[in-house]
Write a protein that binds this DNA or RNA. Structure first.
Lengths: 164, 164
DNA sequence: GCATAGATACTCGGATAGCAACTGTCCGAGTCCTCGGGG
DNA sequence: CCCCGAGGACTCGGACAGTTGCTATCCGAGTATCTATGC
């Protein structure tokens, strides 16, 4: 039960892209420089986000990534599932149907109680992530942070001065 | 985000042990035979349960495992954390303090919003698992299943006849 | 001055090594039961 | 018949390989821009 490190990167990059003006693109170099992340590896996760329909990529110079939808319509769960996959964390292998006291399949109409509880917990986890959007996170950021992000995305060549 | 397979084994074994009479022990061979699991590998997980204080092991012939507390006082979370560990699924590496737009540490008094949301979801997941005890699961089992479990634990040499 | 063709530089995408963690297994330490011998 | 002691068998516990998936990286395909040339 350990989440991939790429989840943190993907979430922060998605929030950063939510600060960009509509239509503006941010290349993976720009995003990697924003957080000082290895560019090649970050690209792998950005690609997963594109494949999941969270981001849209444009090739060529002046190309880059942008959100596929408005920040209000992208949930944290969308980003997490893009990296980690949509398969539930718990998979029931029906061991109750094996061994000396195996329950015959015709008696297994109801789902295994153990699996039921684990899936309920998994659902609670996903519901909690689904309730928060990128716009919500953006709203929790301080105004200077948002301003600096916007400035960096507009012109990555000149880093904004550190906050005093 | 994938739970270890041992979680399923540990949960089922714990539920099975909850059916045993107080004071009765079940060896790992007995438990492995119950679900037709590899005995040596199951032992690894049972050992984790002992280390976490969920089970108590007794050596020697007629030895084995028993619950450390009453089934009503052992939550599913206790078993899951015994296998998976207690560290949260999401670890914040504070990447907001790195890179071109690094936020200075003195401005990071509030926790990172991204980490906050991920930890909230992790808490929801754990709360969901903490709300269910082994006794609850035991109550959801059918009466024939409970009876067969009890009979097998009392005498593993003669498997109970299959339910008609 | 303008249009066009070519070269260029920058972007994303897939395919390729390296390492950690889960999976699976074995053997040793300790304990209780059993069996044999002696009283 | 009862007590004692040695042996054996069964238990758990820690230490040791194998495999899958995350970590990290590189190079190729494609495109918009820039430049130089011709009109």
């Amino acid at each position: 039960m350990k989440l991939s490190q790429g989840v943190e990167w993907a979430l922060h990059c998605a929030v950063t892209l939510a600060e960009a003006d509509a239509g503006d693109l941010a290349s993976r170099r720009t995003l990697a420089g924003y957080y000082d992340l290895p560019e090649a590896y970050l690209a792998k996760h950005l690609k997963s986000l594109v494949r999941a329909g969270v981001l849209i990529a444009s090739p060529g110079p002046r190309g880059g990534f942008r959100l596929a939808r408005a920040p209000e319509q992208i949930t944290v769960l969308d980003v997490v599932e893009a990296i980690e996959g949509t398969t539930p964390s718990f998979v029931c292998t029906e061991i109750r149907q094996r061994g000396a006291c195996a329950v015959p399949p015709e008696r297994c109409t109801a789902p295994c109680p153990v699996a039921q509880i684990m899936l309920d917990a998994d659902r609670a986890w996903r519901d909690s992530l689904r309730a928060v959007t990128l716009a919500d996170i953006s709203g929790r950021l301080s105004e200077p942070t948002r301003a600096r992000a916007k400035a960096w995305l507009a012109d990555p060549s000149t880093p904004p001065p550190p906050v005093s």
